[in-house]
Amino acid sequence: MADQQRIRVLVAKPGLDGHDRGAKVIVRALRDAGMEVIYTGIRQTPEMIASAALQEDVDVIGLSILSGAHMAVFPKIMELLRAGGMDDVVVLAGGIFPDEDVPKIKAMGIRGVFGPGTPLSEIVEFIRANVGRPEAA
């Protein structure tokens, strides 16, 4: 196991809400699933997230957001990732999203959208199934 390539995930918390208990639970679950998880902390701007993702060359970015700013923040993040040549990164979003926003979020290129109460194992499985696979067009 020691030398194997591992799935690298950046867990970031965009938006202004100041607690990150949820994000930390995800971090731990992914680590326990054998992934290398880079945590960047709370109140991350899209620029910070894109810059960290580039430097860390992650396979996956998990965005945890509670503040309701997703429709403003997500497009900006996706745009910066594309501009930085990181279109192949699998992006997931976790948080509370109105039903009508989910298709719009997916249309931005965010492949997984997870509401509160999603079993952690589902997120783990989603990542395993999607890393290294091009988006089904």
Partner: peptide, 22 residues
């Protein structure tokens, strides 16, 4: 360090170094 049990790891040092992102 990687977890000896699962091989996973939490890499959290960046949290304190975000100021220079640009």
């Amino acid at each position: 360090p990687s977890s000896t049990l699962t091989g996973g790891a939490t890499l959290g040092d960046r949290v304190r170094m975000m100021a220079t992102y640009a």
